[in-house]
C-alpha cells in the first residue's frame, strides 16, 4: 500500500500567488483603451455643463459647472433650425419613430419571408432566396441617388413611409432568421403537424416564441441601425418637422458656422441626447446585442 498523508490538517492559509507583471500590463492596456473610448463622450458631457461663452473661450472643458440643466432644457424645448420649426423633443420623437419603425418593419417582413423560404415546399424558393440575397451586396449608399429619385417620384419625400420603407429593402434580417429557422430541430414541425397545427398556428404558437431571444437581439441591432441613419434622412426629409436627432446634427454644425458665439451647450446637449437611447439599449441588453451581432454576420 502506498503512502497517504492527506489528512494532515493545515490552516487555510491565503493562497500564495506569484505577482505577474504581465497581468498589470494587460490591465494597463485595457484601461488605456477604455479611456480612449470613453473620454470623448465624458468630456462632451462635462463641457455641456458650461455656458456658451465659456465653451467658446476654453473649448472642451474637464470639470463641472451649473449649466447642464439649462443646456438640456434649451436643447429639448427651444425651437431651432432655419425655419425655427423643430425642438429637441420633436427630433427625439422622430428618432424613435425611425428606430422602432425600422426595426419592427424589418423584423416582421423578414421573419415572414424567412418562414416562407424555410418551411414551405415552394417551387421558386431558390429563386426568391437569390433575389433577396443579392440585396446584401449593395448598401443603400451606392444607389443613393436613384433611390432618392424613385421615392421622390412616388411623392414619398418628407413622409415617414419614405423615410423608413426604403431602408428595409435589404436582406440582413431575412438572412438572419433563415439561419435561425434552419437550426430549429426538424422534429419541432413534425411534432406540431402531428398535433394538428397548420402553418399559421405553427408560426405563431411555436416559431415566434422560440425566436424570442433572436427577435430581441435583432431588434436591438436594427433599432441602433435605424436610429443612426444619416444620409438617407438627410435626403428624404427637408422639412424640419421630420428631422431626427442624427439628421439634426448637421443643422447644428451649420448654425455654428455663422454665429458669433455658437450655441455649443445646446449642440452638445443634442448630441448627447442623440447618443443616450442607442447607447442605453446596447449597454443594458449587452448579451443579446453581442449574440445578435455575432450570429447575424455568420
Amino acid at each position: 500500500m502506498a503512502e497517504i498523508s492527506q489528512t494532515i490538517a493545515t490552516p487555510a492559509a491565503p493562497p500564495r500567488r506569484r505577482f505577474r507583471w504581465g497581468r498589470v500590463f494587460d490591465h494597463a492596456v485595457l484601461i488605456l483603451g477604455s479611456a480612449f473610448m470613453l473620454m470623448p463622450v465624458l468630456l462632451a458631457l462635462t463641457t455641456m455643463s458650461f455656458s456658451d461663452v465659456q465653451i467658446e473661450r476654453q473649448g472642451i472643458i474637464f470639470g463641472l459647472s451649473d449649466q447642464m440643466g439649462a443646456n438640456f432644457t434649451k436643447a429639448m424645448t427651444e425651437k431651432s433650425g432655419f425655419t425655427e420649426a423643430i425642438t429637441g423633443t420633436r427630433m427625439l420623437m422622430n428618432s424613435f419613430i425611425l428606430g422602432i419603425g425600422f426595426a419592427l418593419g424589418k423584423i416582421v417582413i423578414s421573419m415572414m419571408a424567412a418562414y416562407a423560404i424555410v418551411y414551405f415546399r415552394l417551387r421558386f424558393a431558390t429563386f426568391a432566396f437569390w433575389i433577396i440575397f443579392t440585396t446584401l451586396l449593395l448598401p443603400l449608399e451606392v444607389r443613393i441617388l436613384p433611390s432618392y429619385e424613385v421615392v421622390q417620384g412616388m411623392g414619398l419625400t418628407n413622409t415617414y413611409t419614405g423615410l423608413i420603407v426604403p431602408l428595409i429593402a435589404s436582406a440582413t434580417g431575412t438572412f438572419f432568421f433563415r439561419q435561425f429557422f434552419r437550426s430549429v430541430p426538424e422534429e419541432m414541425i413534425e411534432a406540431a403537424r402531428i398535433d394538428g397545427a397548420g402553418p399559421v398556428k405553427f408560426f405563431i404558437d411555436i416559431l415566434v416564441p422560440l425566436s424570442r431571444t433572436m427577435i430581441a437581439a435583432i431588434f436591438i441591432i436594427m433599432f441602433v441601425f435605424g436610429w443612426n441613419q444619416y444620409l438617407w434622412p438627410t435626403l428624404i426629409t427637408t422639412e424640419e418637422g421630420l428631422f431626427t436627432l442624427v439628421r439634426g446634427i448637421k443643422q447644428i454644425i451649420q448654425v455654428f458656422e455663422g454665429a458669433t458665439i455658437p450655441e455649443y451647450g445646446k449642440g452638445l446637449a443634442l448630441a448627447v441626447i442623440a447618443m443616450i437611447p442607442p447607447v442605453a439599449i446596447v449597454v443594458f441588453f449587452q448579451n443579446w446585442f453581442v449574440k445578435g451581432l455575432v450570429e447575424s454576420e455568420k
Binding site: L30, M37, N228, A271, M275
Partner: peptide, 20 residues
C-alpha cells in the same frame, strides 16, 4: 466600456471630432 461606442452614430462621432 470597449463596445458601447458601437451605438454612437457616425455624424455624432464627427460632431465630437469637430469639438476635439
Amino acid at each position: 466600456l470597449l463596445m458601447w461606442v458601437y451605438a454612437i452614430a457616425p455624424p455624432v462621432a464627427g460632431f465630437l471630432g469637430i469639438m476635439f
